[in-house]
Design a protein around this nucleic acid. Structure first.
Lengths: 223, 223, 223, 223
DNA sequence: GTATAATCGAGACGGTACGTCCCGTCTTAGT
DNA sequence: ACTAAGACGGGACGTACCGTCTCGATTATAC
């Protein structure tokens, strides 16, 4: 876990860094589960270290020993839940139809955002990142990073088949496609629907000058 | 102020609403100024009602009487500062060159985000909105609403001169242009530069399929 | 009312003393009644000027204008209730049998102390007097004073018929008879019963060396 | 300390009682000392938990954890100071001359009441007891109880040598001797002097019918 | 009969203290 | 050694009242 202060294989004698080898895995899981559950029940504002410790049946010090902040605990909690099934991050679908694949992914994201069980912790994590640069770094490395790479992979694949220009700035592209979604989610400036996801993909791919007009086909492709 | 609980001149029978007519304007301004200054100095996490009251030379109850939460105070503080000069929201520049005008505006926004004096309170407000639906409504009505309308006005003007399709979904358009900026600002997923602002405008107008290709000029115009 | 800051007939021009002539009698009675009722309902500790004002349907300033303290209000409230029936203080019974008369009075006092409706306000007033010398003076002049005089009158009558020595210190005598009762009431150091009242009268009159022995008659007289 | 909520070594299942074994003795003493000092400096009315905590260099919760009320703190403070020298309560002097011994004790009490350093806290405690039955119970068990027993011991000694009747109600006797003193102290209904102490002893022992007569000696003994 | 001036109800204000929650540190036992 | 437990000094919460200070709106003399 990147937010944890591990000693890199044991730690030397006069080391204030805790010895990760002796760490209780049961407590770790109990803490993360408790944190994830609690943030869904009472919200991030009312989430407290004491509450997590009590729910997890754990001493407060056990939390303070391994995590630097409430946000870091939540981060690992989200990370645990996100990676529970497989080991690595799944790749985006690649059927050859870029717009369709992106639409599929964005519609799935819209669904996730609609489920409070996932939305609440994620929202909390998102806003915590905005205030905590250290957490933002962890986020960039361990959560957003791999996901963004997967997104870029799909775009590279599109470049290979000529669906996207070769000199496209992929980071800009990812932001153009997913940025509006995140912004609308966090600020609630509009409805988060499948229709929005589809229109967003079309507009991002074809631009405002030529996209999203009714009468044009759903793939957003200009003929 | 939309976050304040005004009684509409008299108040109905069983009304716990304070009498807005007797409200002290001096205290109101002192509180908002103190809140704005403090959030810049100590950050939102360490911003406290007690701190605001002490700085403003005001009793805590005077804050609790007129605002429901710390976020609401900050909201009004930002609103006051935002509207201090003129009365209404300024319109976007309209030189006839849509891409240039948008670039100008986004570059200015990038500059604002780079100034901690404005960035810190705005960031705090942004994340508070994510958790507080009541605040989000105020935001939609009094801060984002007018600004979004100004943005749409500029886009409508572009529609009138044929720069944008007549059937364009303007809310989608606004999100496509400004969403990536906000997302990158909040999540720090990439550098916030003038170059990014320009590339974003180009990509949004022309789409990923047709943007940022060599040989095309920086305005993002297709020939 | 001795605790009120009257201007002695009108008050001169630049006088901050309120003009008692213009005083609202209705408000005064409402305040005293509210104070008396409230102290019985919530106890003296939770009795507040705001509470009295609200219950009496009166502005807070009206209380602060006429009384210097919470205790002073309560004092007048008790005084009002105590003097409601007649105008002056009633004399003690005088049948010629001192012990019997005193026993009657003390038994009545015991009954009063047992009734929370009178006991609570009185207890509050009693303890307030212990801390507030100004209130103690009012108490001495207007409540305890007349009562003590009545008690001394009865003792003087006994002196006249030879039941008590002519050179008896009457203040000491009053304290010896009523002091133990008050002390036991305030400190709850023992049961407050009619039996105690009788035994107290006997012991006070005849002394510990010769009093309160079973087999002697209830009047406490030695044969 | 009787006002503290001890868990008897371990505590039973559903126990919200703090673990007395881990209690900080230093904090306890600092709190009691601060309370005692403050009540002498500012009076009981202005004595606050916050003030005690600040003076003692202690968190407020540490006070709320171990004492249920401001009065309970003061009670323990008085108790600590009262018992500081020896372990148990000192016995009353017993020279064989009851009146002389009682006079000595009462004169000493009069002196204590005259010293604000002791009088103020005691007065506060006394009035607090009048309102708080729980505190009254503690008082009866730990402060008044042992003292009253010592008083009764002296009276029993007098009974043994024939100075007092064998069937005397000792509780009544104690109240008759000390009650007038306490009453006059709390209500300030008369001067608290050595002369009063002596006259009180004489009157209590010999009764109003036979006391304070000229020709009788100051010891209050009847010939 | 009107001025005119004080009191009245109401309640906002700058404050103090309340009793609670939680912070992050530290200590003690137990495994 | 790490753990569960939780006491500790501290900071802030949101509430209740304090006593002071305006506000109109009644009154009740004094012109």
């Amino acid at each position: 876990m990147s937010t944890e202060r591990n000693s890199p294989a044991g730690g030397t004698a006069r080391d204030r860094t805790p010895n990760a080898a002796r760490r209780s895995e049961a407590s770790r899981r109990a803490i993360l589960t408790a944190a994830f559950d609690l943030v869904g029940e009472v919200g991030y504002a009312r989430l407290s270290i004491e509450g997590i410790a009590a729910r997890a049946g754990v001493g407060k010090q056990t939390i303070y020993r391994w995590w630097p902040s409430k946000g870091a605990v939540l981060f690992d909690a989200v990370l645990m839940l996100a990676q529970d099934p497989g080991g690595g991050t799944a790749a985006l679908p690649d059927t050859g139809d870029l717009a369709a694949d992106l639409g599929l992914v964005l519609r799935a994201t819209v669904d996730e955002f609609a489920d409070p069980r996932f939305s609440e912790p994620l929202r909390a994590l998102s806003t915590e990142i905005a205030h905590d640069p250290a957490l933002a770094r962890s986020y960039a490395e361990r959560l957003d990073g791999p996901l963004r790479e997967a997104k870029k992979d799909r775009l590279r694949s599109a470049q290979r088949v000529g669906d996207l220009p070769e000199d496209l700035d992929l980071d800009l592209a990812v932001d153009l496609i997913w940025g509006p979604l995140t912004a609308r989610w966090l600020h609630r400036t509009g409805p988060l629907t499948h229709a929005f996801a589809d229109a967003l993909v079309a507009a991002a791919l074809d631009g405002l000058r030529g996209a999203a007009a009714p009468g044009r086909d759903g793939t957003g492709r200009r003929e």
